[in-house]
Design a protein around this nucleic acid. Structure first.
Lengths: 232, 232
DNA sequence: ATCTTTTTATTGGTTAACCAAATCAATACT
DNA sequence: AGTATTGATTTGGTTAACCAATAAAAAGAT
């Protein structure tokens, strides 16, 4: 029954081994930013694994900005030696975030995106937020589950914040939040009804382009969640 | 000369096409969370592309938590239809974050991680932060470039925050920050000297486990950067 | 009939062969 | 001598064939 986890760990382990090998190689050869790594073929031969494995390891390091691969040219070091070593260490030891960590991050991000959305929202942003709000309201008044519509409303605000980075991070943590909400039935306790009012308040603040009020209304909205999160 | 960008766009475009195809399939077949998608082989045949392409598209959707693939079993829908459609739309339209957006996000995250680190740091965390601080100081007093050591100090704090999610996000945005700092020579203006004092203040606050002070000292540290960022 | 065992087909993961673009060096031309 | 051109080589990207694990179905024993 735990086989799935085991194989996944194995995969993770071999990928991490390759990442560690690449790190050693860069240190041994003293490669600086802009320097070229050996080709994927040579790396796969050196580490006795297939090219796909090497490619995955490179892609992971590329995702974290440590390497940069250019088609028909090669893979290049993207940051300095010191930062590379320090960050690889962290990347290899990263563990899955807990639900508490996710909620904590979400609240932090959303207090900011609400404020920024009030400052920067376009008319197009506003109509999309409004549309998400209406979809949410319709579900709630029909007493249907509205977790998804709830999250989409918040994502619309994140998009309106004009900060692509925060928007991306919200997209990353949202599905896990949804899953946990539905699993622990966070929103079943008749909270959805008052949720409508809170959502409308946030929308109004963004409509009026009042950043302080937007953040404040978002904080009110999170009050229940906040307490819930810290009482698990 | 712009060919690299073009091919990359092409690659992106075909992957996005497949993602769109998967979305349509899920809608057409009304697949709910837990339902199984067609196998990678069938999808690659249906979309007239190779399995690798399909795999990459699936992996991207899995990264954002919309799908979940299990070895020797299949790929499964992970979230509800409504959320899936809304999020796919956003994912397809995501653009690269600007430097300003990155700095904005970094400041937001770090004011929080400093506070959390003061609350939750272990002794082990503390020694790692201290170690990063010493490495930074040594570089600065030798008048060497210390951008990397600077960032590693901040990453050590992020790790000490005990929030894996924020730690990951810091790791994601850090390399781009480093690159831009070095490009625009943000830290060349003799700021490094006073940076030592500011770093030490942050360290002391975390040592004393004083969250309010840690956040405040971090805010002081970011004051210059903050102004710089908003004056570009 | 029901449960266990065995077989068979399907799955994601892995490897290896193939392709077009980019690079670089040798050559031809001015 | 210097510059442009061309062709072989190297590169990351792509495709297709292969593998082990899984799950489902069929056969056998109780």
């Amino acid at each position: 029954m735990k086989l799935e986890v085991l194989t996944k760990n194995d995969n993770r382990k071999i990928e991490n081994t390759i990442i560690d090998g690449i790190r050693n190689l860069i240190n041994y050869k003293n490669l600086e930013p802009g320097d070229k790594l050996p080709s994927e073929r040579m790396l796969s031969e050196k580490f006795n694994v297939s090219r796909s494995i090497v490619r995955e390891a490179i892609q992971k390091l590329e995702f974290y900005g440590l390497l940069k691969s250019r088609p028909q040219s090669g893979t290049f070091v993207a940051i300095g030696n010191t930062a590379f070593n320090g960050m690889v260490e962290d990347i290899l030891r990263l563990d899955e975030p807990s639900f508490k960590a996710l909620v904590e991050t979400r609240i932090l991000l959303e207090l900011k995106t609400a404020r920024l959305a009030a400052l920067r929202r376009t008319d197009e942003d506003l109509t999309q937020i409004k549309s998400a709000l209406e979809a949410y309201k319709e579900k709630v008044i029909n007493s249907e589950d509205a977790v998804q519509e709830d999250l989409l409303f918040h994502l619309a605000i994140a998009k309106a914040s004009g900060n692509s980075s925060m928007n991306t991070f919200m997209l990353i943590i949202t599905p896990e939040i949804i899953t946990n909400f539905e699993k622990y039935h966070v929103c079943d306790k008749g909270l959805a009804q008052e949720g409508i009012k809170e959502h409308e308040d946030i929308y109004q603040a963004i409509l009026k382009q009042n950043p302080k009020e937007a953040k404040e209304k978002m904080k009110v909205h999170f009050k229940t969640l906040y307490q819930y999160c810290y009482n698990i």
